[in-house]
Amino acid sequence: MKKSDLPIKICPICKRPFTWRKKWERNWNNVKYCSERCRRNKKNEESN
């Protein structure tokens, strides 16, 4: 599979697109954030 064919989501914190990763294979539907840093900063987004 080509990288361009992988699913893409937009991170609600940084607003950047991120693509599917092998480590998220079983949990892709629940992945919301592109990185651990964005996940930790989710409280900042909730207050906006």
Rank of each mutant, 00 (worst) to 15 (best):
1 M>F: 09
1 M>Y: 09
1 M>C: 10
3 K>T: 10
3 K>N: 10
5 D>K: 10
5 D>T: 07
5 D>Y: 11
5 D>Q: 14
6 L>E: 12
7 P>K: 03
7 P>N: 05
7 P>R: 05
8 I>A: 12
8 I>D: 08
9 K>F: 03
11 C>V: 06
11 C>M: 08
11 C>E: 00
11 C>F: 07
11 C>T: 02
12 P>L: 02
12 P>G: 03
12 P>T: 04
13 I>E: 05
13 I>C: 01
13 I>Y: 02
14 C>Y: 04
14 C>H: 03
14 C>I: 04
14 C>K: 02
14 C>F: 05
15 K>Y: 04
15 K>Q: 09
15 K>R: 08
16 R>N: 07
16 R>W: 03
17 P>M: 05
17 P>A: 09
18 F>R: 01
18 F>E: 03
19 T>Y: 11
19 T>A: 11
19 T>E: 11
19 T>V: 09
20 W>S: 00
21 R>N: 14
21 R>I: 10
21 R>G: 13
22 K>L: 08
23 K>A: 11
24 W>P: 00
24 W>Q: 03
24 W>C: 03
25 E>C: 02
25 E>Y: 07
25 E>L: 07
26 R>M: 09
27 N>P: 04
27 N>K: 09
27 N>L: 07
28 W>T: 04
30 N>G: 13
31 V>M: 06
31 V>Q: 00
32 K>I: 09
32 K>S: 08
32 K>C: 03
32 K>H: 10
33 Y>W: 15
33 Y>F: 15
34 C>K: 00
34 C>M: 06
35 S>Q: 09
36 E>N: 13
37 R>P: 01
37 R>D: 14
38 C>R: 01
39 R>V: 04
39 R>H: 15
39 R>W: 13
40 R>L: 14
40 R>G: 02
41 N>F: 12
41 N>R: 14
41 N>P: 01
41 N>H: 14
43 K>M: 13
43 K>W: 13
43 K>F: 13
43 K>R: 14
44 N>F: 11
45 E>Y: 08
45 E>S: 04
46 E>H: 12
46 E>R: 14
47 S>K: 10
